[in-house]
Design a protein around this nucleic acid. Structure first.
Length: 318
DNA sequence: GTAACGTCAGTTCTCTGCTA
DNA sequence: TAGCAGAGAACTGACGTTAC
């Protein structure tokens, strides 16, 4: 893989709506080529390649833009980092929740870092039929095999492959090599549809219609569609309910209908609440997640060799 | 070291039961 | 009888554990 050098274009500073925690926002679900403990790399555009390096304090976010100038960098970054998001209603909804009560305390100010729609779809497909570890290992291999390696300020990073790259002749072979298995077909089909404007179309629709549009792709069901829309478009009212969350909700809340219960509890914050549930329980396998949730251990743990959503960046992905 | 097996989890397909 | 919705089985691939 050849390494691209990107030229610095300009700097800017951004203010966030308080409370805001930059470190937590950048570290969550970040590989070590996106966050190094001090600064985060945020891909803004695949073609022409444009990247932002983000650092600073919780009061002021310092940004350096690299690559090719484009309009609306500030608007895009504010969206990606959720700088204007007001989570006060979410915090009051979950402050007594047995699963999420730690979020307004331990994770106060942390926002969900939004992904590009295509990258979110790629993430969601890799999470199908896979444990947390399996899904993220698969994704890291796909990035390494098909992404673009880039140097910014001496920081080596990987820009995720766009749909075009997934339609190249050798893409399916590399996806199989990355351990994607049957998902390779789904990813290629999704890339085709993305090139035809599927994701742009979804972004202009209501959440339920957007979900229907994504589900037209063979291999994409409600979980994958909803997760994509939550991660990229902040359609938080959607609930990406997988077996893990279903089982957890049934046991912790003592109910038979997890979806009904979660919608009643979390309301318009279902998608964000799902994201934070994986964070507070360190995306443990269901048996351990259940044990922890039922014994009240709902605070994320430090890194002890096994990567978690908050410590993925400390892990060496192979 | 390797094969066999169980587990995990989302999608797809098939079957069953209900309604008009 | 046809159409629909929901439930459940089958399928998929990776990974961990166990037995040999």
């Amino acid at each position: 893989m050849c390494v691209l050098e990107l030229k610095e274009l300009y700097e800017l500073k951004l203010q966030a709506k308080e409370p805001f925690n930059l470190n937590l926002t950048l570290s969550c679900y970040s590989f070590n080529w996106w966050f190094n403990g001090r600064a985060g790399v945020i891909p803004l555009l695949e073609e022409p390649m444009t990247v932002a390096v983000v650092s600073g304090s919780n009061l002021e976010v310092e940004v350096k833009v690299f690559g090719v100038e484009q309009v609306d960098v500030e608007k895009q970054l504010r969206w990606i980092l959720g700088l204007d998001e007001d989570l006060s209603d979410f915090y009051s909804k979950v402050e007594r929740d047995p699963l999420l009560r730690e979020v307004p305390k331990t994770l106060r100010g942390m926002r969900m870092r939004a992904l590009s729609p295509w990258n979110a779809l790629l993430v969601a497909i890799c999470q199908q039929n896979a444990s947390f570890m399996q899904g993220w290992r698969m994704l890291s291999r796909i990035y390494k095999l098909l992404g673009a390696e880039v140097n910014v300020e001496g920081l080596k990073t990987i820009i995720p492959p766009g749909p075009g790259k997934l339609l190249s002749d050798d893409a399916k072979v590399k996806l199989r090599e990355a351990g994607a298995g049957y998902r390779a077909e789904v990813i290629v089909e999704a890339a085709k549809r993305a090139r035809e404007g599927l994701l742009k179309e979804a972004s202009s629709l209501s959440p339920s219609r957007a979900e229907d549009v994504l589900r037209e792709v063979k291999g994409i069901g409600s979980y994958t569609a909803r997760l994509t829309l939550v991660l990229s478009m902040r359609m938080y009212e959607l609930l990406p309910l997988d077996r893990w969350l279903k089982r957890l909700a049934e046991e912790v809340y003592g109910v038979e209908d997890a979806e009904k219960e979660l919608k009643a509890r979390w309301g318009r914050w279902c998608g964000l609440a799902t994201y934070f549930t994986t964070v507070v329980l360190d995306a443990e396998v269901i048996s351990e997640a259940l044990r922890r949730a039922l014994s009240g251990e709902v605070k994320p743990k430090p890194y002890v060799g096994r990567p978690t959503p908050l410590t993925m960046w400390m892990h060496e992905w192979r």
